[in-house]
Lab assay of single mutants.
Amino acid sequence: EAKQAFKELLKEKRVPSNASWEQAMKMIINDPRYSALAKLSEKKQAFNAY
């Protein structure tokens, strides 16, 4: 599932759970899995759940 892949990406890149969305994006934007969720709102939702 795309959300699961996105959460795994956050874990693998060691994005701190208290990081802001902007900080997290800088760490993950170059990974192909960043595109797993098409909409930015879906990415933010998955990030907030993380």
Rank of each mutant, 00 (worst) to 15 (best):
S41C: 08
A36H: 09
F47E: 05
Y34K: 07
I29T: 13
Q4A: 11
K44A: 02
K7R: 11
F6A: 06
A5C: 04
E1V: 00
W21G: 07
S20T: 15
L9G: 05
A24I: 02
E42L: 04
L37W: 01
A2K: 12
L37N: 03
K3F: 15
K26L: 08
N48H: 10
E12K: 01
A38M: 08
L40W: 07
E12Y: 02
A38N: 11
N18M: 05
K43C: 02
Y34L: 00
A2S: 06
Q45W: 02
E42P: 01
S35L: 12
K26W: 01
D31M: 04
A36C: 14
A19C: 13
S35D: 14
E8W: 00
E8P: 00
Q23W: 04
A19R: 00
L37T: 04
W21D: 09
N30G: 15
P16E: 03
K44H: 13
Q4Y: 00
Y34D: 08
P16Q: 00
M27H: 11
P16R: 03
A38S: 14
W21H: 03
E42S: 06
P16K: 04
A49S: 14
K43P: 10
M25E: 15
Q4C: 00
L37G: 07
I29K: 15
A24C: 10
E1Q: 15
V15W: 01
S35K: 12
Q4G: 09
K3Y: 14
M27K: 05
S20A: 05
S20Y: 01
K26C: 06
E8V: 00
A46E: 12
S17Y: 14
A38I: 08
S41L: 02
E22G: 10
E1P: 06
E42N: 02
L40G: 06
A49W: 01
Y50N: 09
M25N: 12
E22F: 05
E1R: 06
M27L: 13
I28G: 05
N18G: 11
D31N: 01
K43Q: 07
K44E: 10
K3E: 14
E22A: 09
K26E: 13
A2G: 14
L37C: 08
A36G: 13
K39R: 12
K13F: 07
L37R: 02
S41F: 00
A2N: 14
N30K: 12
W21I: 03
L40N: 09
M27E: 09
D31Q: 02
I28E: 05
K7N: 09
P32T: 07
K26D: 14
K3S: 10
E12G: 04
Q45N: 09
S20G: 08
Y50Q: 06
E22M: 10
Y34M: 01
N30S: 14
Q23M: 07
K43F: 09
L9H: 03
I28Y: 02
Y34N: 03
K39F: 06
F47P: 06
A5E: 12
K39H: 06
E22Y: 01
P16H: 02
M27T: 09
Q23A: 10
A49C: 11
A5I: 14
E12Q: 06
K43W: 07
A38E: 15
A5T: 13
K44L: 13
Q45I: 14
R14Q: 14
I28K: 08
S41A: 11
N48V: 02
A46T: 07
I29N: 15
D31P: 05
K3A: 11
K44T: 05
S17D: 11
W21N: 07
S20V: 05
K43M: 11
K11V: 15
K11D: 12
P32Y: 00
P16A: 09
K13M: 08
A19S: 08
I29L: 11
S41K: 06
Y34W: 10
V15A: 00
A36F: 10
K44P: 03
P16W: 00
A38T: 12
L40E: 15
A5P: 03
E22H: 10
F47S: 04
N48C: 02
F6K: 08
F6T: 04
A19D: 01
N30H: 11
I28T: 09
L9E: 05
V15K: 00
S35N: 12
P16D: 07
P16V: 02
E42A: 06
L10I: 08
E42Q: 07
K44R: 09
Y34R: 06
A24T: 08
Y50F: 01
K26P: 13
N48Q: 11
Y50P: 09
N18W: 09
A36I: 05
A24W: 00
Q4P: 01
K11F: 09
Q4F: 00
K11E: 14
R14I: 02
E12V: 03
Y34Q: 02
A2L: 05
F6I: 04
V15G: 02
S35Y: 15
Q45L: 10
V15I: 09
K3D: 10
M25I: 12
K13W: 04
D31S: 01
Y34C: 07
Q4H: 07
P16N: 01
Q45F: 07
N30T: 12
A49H: 04
E8Q: 11
Q23V: 12
S41W: 06
L40S: 10
A36Y: 08
K44Q: 13
M25W: 04
